[in-house]
């Protein structure tokens, strides 16, 4: 029992890295992803091309490779980042590409009549985006966003590869040291609890937005 408690404490300590990375990624990737989506839907061909290329590159290569590129590749150009900054930057850039596509789908699913109506009422592009489009988009992107949030929780385990002691690495250390796989179960419980909370959170959000339609 003591053993389980000890390992749980170690994994809980690792979970600080996991949650820090999780929330930091959301803070940066959500607004950045929205900006990419809006740029991609703009009428400017250069912006469209730029954002399409961005999405292609970031979705088209493994996140792990992107982490390595920033961690091992950037120092070649004289840019040295610590591990946590590396992880946050790589995750934010990568997840922004996925979020952008979800936002784009959400925005495109909004009826053309909404834009026309806002337009003839005199609302500007920014007012229409902020007051008419985004509130309706949020409701529509909740289910795919729930998926991405859960993916993000699990993907944080990748930073193991650059030596950050997140949940999985904390568990792995105990496994190797103690010749038992119990720590892996404890790690699994952490992930499951986290994703359960997210699932419930998204269910609540969907209920909250169920007031119309």
């Amino acid at each position: 029992m003591d053993y389980i408690l000890n390992v749980t404490m170690a994994v809980a300590y690792g979970s600080k890295i996991t949650y820090l990375l999780f929330f930091s990624t959301l803070i940066f990737a959500l607004p950045f992803g929205l900006m990419i989506a809006l740029a991609r839907l703009s009428n400017l061909p250069s912006l469209k091309a730029l954002t399409s290329t961005y999405i292609w590159l970031l979705r088209g290569t493994p996140l792990l490779l992107q982490i390595f590129f920033i961690y091992f590749g950037l120092p070649v150009f004289g840019i040295n980042l610590d591990r946590m900054s590396t992880a946050i930057i790589a995750f934010s850039l990568n997840y922004a590409a996925y979020f952008a596509e979800i936002f784009r789908a959400g925005i495109q699913s909004i009826d053309k009549g909404q834009y026309e109506c806002a337009d003839v009422l005199g609302l500007t592009y920014l007012q229409t985006t902020k007051r008419i489009v985004i509130p309706q988009m949020i409701k529509r992107v909740l289910p795919p966003m729930g998926n991405e949030f859960i993916n993000l929780v699990k993907d944080t385990a990748l930073v193991y590869a650059i030596g950050l002691s997140e949940i999985l690495r904390a568990a792995k250390i105990a496994v190797v040291r103690d010749f038992t796989i119990t720590p892996f179960f404890i790690a699994a419980v952490f992930y499951l609890l986290t994703t359960l909370i997210l699932t419930l959170f998204f269910r609540k959000m969907e209920q909250k937005y169920a007031y119309y339609e």
């Binding site: 009549g113 026309e116 109506c117 003839v120 005199g122 309706q136 339609e213």
Partner: peptide, 17 residues
């Protein structure tokens, strides 16, 4: 000038939210 015109659409186009 457009603000001098009010328009009513076939499909209402109310803001659902």
């Amino acid at each position: 000038l457009r603000l001098k015109m009010g328009m009513v659409f076939q499909n209402f186009n109310l803001f659902p939210h």
